[in-house]
C-alpha cells in the first residue's frame, strides 16, 4: 500500500485515538486534585510531543521514553 492508501485506511482510527487521548487528558484536568507535577503525566506529555516530530522512528522513541534505563554494569550494582 502507498502512503495515501494507508492514510485512507487508518484516518478514522487515528482520529478516534487522538480524541480518546484528548478526552482522557480533559477528564484528568476536570477532576478534583491535580496531576500537574505527576511524573506519569509528564511522561504522557513528552510522548505526545514525540508524535508531533518528523522522526521516522517515533514508536521506538516512545517505547524508550516509557522504559527503565539499562545499565551495562548492572551485575556490579
Amino acid at each position: 500500500m502507498n502512503a495515501e492508501e494507508i492514510l485512507d485506511r487508518e484516518y478514522l482510527q487515528i482520529r478516534a485515538s487522538i480524541l480518546d487521548i484528548a478526552a482522557a487528558l480533559d477528564r484528568q484536568d476536570r477532576a478534583d486534585g491535580s496531576v500537574e507535577d505527576n511524573r506519569r503525566r509528564e511522561l504522557l506529555q513528552r510522548g505526545i510531543a514525540i508524535l508531533a516530530t518528523d522522526s521516522a522512528d517515533r514508536v521506538a522513541q516512545v517505547q524508550l521514553l516509557f522504559s527503565r534505563e539499562y545499565d551495562p554494569n548492572w551485575r556490579e550494582v
Binding site: Q63, L64, S67, R68, E69, Y70, W74
Partner: peptide, 14 residues
C-alpha cells in the same frame, strides 16, 4: 512487560 522490558531484555542478552 511495559517499563521493565527494555532493561530486562538487555540484561537477558548479557
Amino acid at each position: 512487560h511495559l517499563e521493565d522490558k527494555y532493561q530486562g531484555t538487555r540484561m537477558i542478552l548479557d
